[in-house]
Simulated assay, not measured.
Amino acid sequence: MIKLVIFDLDGTLLDTIYDLAHSCNYALELHHYPTHTIEAYRFFVGNGMNKLVERALPESDRNPATIAKVKRDFLLYYADHSTEFTRPYPGITELLETLQNKGIKLAVASNKIDSATKYLTKRFFPDIKFSTVLGQREDFPIKPDPSIVYEIMKNADTGKEETLYVGDSGVDVETALNAGVRLVSVLWGFRPKAELEAKGATLFVEEAREILNLLNK
């Protein structure tokens, strides 16, 4: 029986791609680098902020100093513009409310900066009492390392067989497999089904309510 559901944030609970893309493009323009389309950013995100900026930069400028400068301005801009276009995906709020009412513990595990993860989760889901909300923290491994999942399970006092992980990317698939927990991959997020299948995903949903149907079986 599932007692804990861990959700990825970007591309799973929230459609954040427009604010991420506009913020990164702002920082790139500030440093006189080419910008990218929204579609391109769907493949830049998922592995943490450093990797996002690295992927957005020209290959010849992907060095630690340049990444740090662009990342700094990206984060400064994003802090003031992270909710301009960001919204929960259809049915997500209702799903979380239903799961909470059923007594299932809820958590968020993201590779987004921890402060932004906590802020956006609270901003868009103020009535949901998540057991744990964790993002990327300094000196702590990011997904697909399973440490974040283990920490959440420990906080919730649940075992692997009682935990379901929900995500939209190949990183999420690897995270769940590395942690040894059950996985549901969503198809409304940033990455295509082919990527998820290539990483080992086998269970997919196209609408939020399908997750509830799976848990009811």
Rank of each mutant, 00 (worst) to 15 (best):
M1Q: 06
I2G: 09
L4Q: 05
F7H: 12
D8F: 01
D8R: 02
L9Q: 04
T12E: 01
T16Y: 01
T16C: 05
D19E: 10
L20C: 00
A21S: 12
A21V: 06
H22I: 12
S23P: 08
S23I: 13
Y26W: 14
L30M: 06
H31R: 08
H31C: 10
Y33P: 08
T35N: 05
A40Q: 14
N50S: 14
L52V: 09
V53W: 02
E54N: 07
A56H: 00
L57Y: 02
P58T: 08
E59Q: 13
D61P: 00
R62L: 06
P64V: 07
T66Q: 09
I67D: 01
V70D: 12
V70P: 10
R72C: 13
R72F: 14
D73R: 01
F74D: 02
F74N: 04
F74C: 07
L76Y: 08
H81I: 12
T86N: 11
P88G: 08
Y89D: 03
T93K: 02
L96C: 13
T98R: 03
K102F: 09
A107H: 05
K112H: 06
I113D: 11
S115T: 14
S115L: 04
Y119E: 07
K122P: 06
R123G: 10
R123H: 15
F130W: 05
G135E: 03
Q136N: 01
Q136C: 02
Q136Y: 00
Q136I: 08
P141E: 11
P141T: 14
I142L: 09
I142G: 01
K154F: 13
T158L: 04
E161W: 09
T163Q: 00
L164W: 04
G170Q: 06
D172Q: 03
L177S: 14
N178F: 04
G180N: 12
G180P: 03
G180K: 08
V181W: 00
L187D: 02
L187G: 10
W188L: 13
G189Y: 04
F190C: 02
E195V: 15
E197A: 15
E197R: 07
A198K: 14
G200S: 08
L203S: 09
L203P: 00
F204S: 06
V205I: 15
E210N: 09
I211M: 11
K217N: 15
K217C: 13
